[in-house]
Design a protein around this nucleic acid. Structure first.
Length: 367
DNA sequence: TCTGGGGTCCTAGGACCC
DNA sequence: TCTGGGGTCCTAGGACCC
C-alpha cells in the first residue's frame, strides 16, 4: 500500500492485496489515468516482484470490473462515457452484488449479460429484489457514485466462529468453545475500547442448516462473562439433539468508546473494590497477550483442549488496527510491534492466576 | 470442492408506544 | 373502549464480499 500512496493520499484498501485510488488531479503531475496505472504496476513489480492488475475508470465499480478482466497482469482503461458499452457484453456474474442466488433468478428472466440487465425494466427488478434491484440496474449502466474512502469505516460488529473437524453434540465441547470465542471477542472489544449491547450466536448443524439468535443487553459490555452467559443461554436450547458443525459468537450495537478507569465502579480510589481488582486482572491478562501473543494466557477451563485460540487479530479489521496502534487503513509495510518485557510481568501473571483462575500456557511455537 | 472465517447490508415480521 | 396508522426497536434469516 505504501507504493500506492506515492501516487495519491486517497487510497481505500479493500483487502490485503486490493485497493482503490482516487487519482483525480494527478494528471498534471503524472499524466493520464492510463499512465498512472502503468506506473503503479511498475512500482509494484519493483518493490514486490509481483504483477498487478489495474483498472482505470471514472467510478470504483467500473474500475474494479476492468481490473478483474485481465488478471493477473492487466491494464484496462474505460473512458468516461463508455461505461455502459464496456459492461454490456460481460456476463452478469462479473457484477458486484450478483452472487449465486441473484444470478440464478436473473437467468430465469433470460438475463445473461450486463447489457440484458441494463435493458430490463427497473420496476421488475425492484419487485423481485427490492432496493437492491434498482442498484443492480444502475450498476449495469456503469452508474456508481461511491467515492474512494481514505478512512476506514468503524466496525459494526466483532465476532468469532469455529467449524469443528467432526460435528459434535458434546455439551462440554460446545460450552468451552462458546467460552473461548466469548473470551476472544471481549478481548478485542476491550483493546478497541468498545462495548457491545447485542450478543449473537450462530449455529450450523450437520445438514448445513444455519440459525442465529441474538439478545440485546440493558448495559453494553466488554467482558467475557456476560457475553458467554448470554451466548450459552441462546445456544443451549438450539443445540439440543443436533450435531453441531459450526458455532459462532458475535457482538454488535456498539456504544461510545469506553474509558477504562483505575477506580472501582463506585468511583472510590481507596480500598480496591472487587470490580476494580477484577478489572486489573483482566487488564493484566490483556497485557500479557499483547506482548506474548494471543495464546499466552488462556482460561483454566480451556487448557489443553486445543479449542480455538481467542484474540486472533485481523490486520484488515479497523477495530483491530486501532488496537495495534496502527492507522485505520491497512498498510502492508506496517511497523513491527514492540515486544519488550517489563519487570512487572511475573506479578501480573500471578495476579491473573489468582484472581481469574486463569493459567499461563506455554506454547511451543512462541519463544 | 460438499462448503473457512470475518464482515456488511437488506428484508420482513413482531412488539411496543403514541 | 375500540380501532387504525405510523414510527422505532429488536430479532431472524439471507445474500454477498474478500
Amino acid at each position: 500500500m505504501a507504493v500506492l500512496r506515492r501516487f495519491t493520499p486517497i487510497v481505500e484498501p479493500v483487502s490485503i492485496d486490493e485497493a482503490f485510488l482516487d487519482v483525480t488531479g494527478t494528471d498534471r503531475l503524472i499524466g493520464s489515468g492510463e499512465e498512472v496505472g502503468r506506473q503503479i504496476k511498475a512500482g509494484i513489480v519493483d518493490e514486490t516482484q509481483l504483477t498487478a492488475s489495474v483498472g482505470v475508470a471514472a467510478s470504483k465499480l467500473v474500475a474494479k470490473i476492468a481490473s478483474d478482466l485481465r488478471k493477473p497482469d492487466g491494464l484496462v482503461v474505460v473512458e468516461p462515457g463508455d461505461e455502459a458499452e464496456f459492461l454490456a457484453p460481460l456476463p452478469i456474474s462479473r457484477m458486484w452484488g450478483v452472487g449465486e442466488s441473484t444470478a440464478t433468478v436473473l437467468r430465469e428472466y433470460g438475463v445473461r449479460t450486463l447489457g440484458d440487465l441494463a435493458a430490463t425494466p427497473v420496476d421488475l427488478l425492484v419487485r423481485r429484489f427490492g432496493k437492491h434491484g434498482a442498484t443492480l440496474h444502475d450498476r449495469a449502466l456503469g452508474i456508481d457514485d461511491d467515492p474512494v474512502h481514505a478512512e476506514a469505516a468503524d466496525a459494526k460488529s466483532v465476532s468469532h466462529e469455529h467449524t469443528f473437524d467432526v460435528d459434535t453434540n458434546d455439551r462440554e465441547t460446545i460450552e468451552r468453545t462458546l467460552l473461548a470465542m466469548a473470551d476472544g471477542v471481549s478481548g478485542r472489544l476491550r483493546s478497541a475500547g468498545l462495548k457491545a449491547a447485542t450478543v449473537h450466536v450462530k449455529i450450523r448443524d450437520s445438514s448445513f442448516r444455519t440459525i442465529t439468535r441474538q439478545r440485546t443487553l440493558v448495559e453494553p459490555t466488554d467482558q467475557t462473562e456476560p457475553i458467554f452467559r448470554i451466548a450459552l443461554d441462546l445456544a443451549r436450547p438450539e443445540v439440543r439433539g443436533i450435531r453441531v458443525r459450526l458455532l459462532g459468537v458475535g457482538t454488535s450495537n456498539f456504544g461510545e468508546p469506553s474509558q477504562i478507569g483505575m477506580f472501582g465502579a463506585d468511583g472510590s480510589s481507596g480500598a480496591e473494590s472487587r470490580e476494580a481488582r477484577r478489572r486489573r486482572a483482566i487488564e493484566a491478562s490483556d497485557d500479557l497477550r499483547r506482548r506474548y501473543g494471543h495464546r499466552a494466557v488462556t482460561r483454566g477451563r480451556l487448557v489443553g483442549t486445543g479449542l480455538p485460540a481467542p484474540f486472533e487479530r485481523d490486520p484488515m479489521s479497523p477495530t483491530d488496527r486501532r488496537t495495534l496502534g496502527e492507522p485505520d487503513t491497512a498498510d502492508t509495510g506496517r511497523k513491527q510491534l514492540r515486544a519488550t518485557a517489563r519487570p512487572g510481568l511475573r506479578d501480573a501473571a500471578a495476579e491473573v492466576d489468582a484472581r481469574l483462575e486463569q493459567a499461563e500456557v506455554p506454547q511451543s511455537e512462541e519463544s
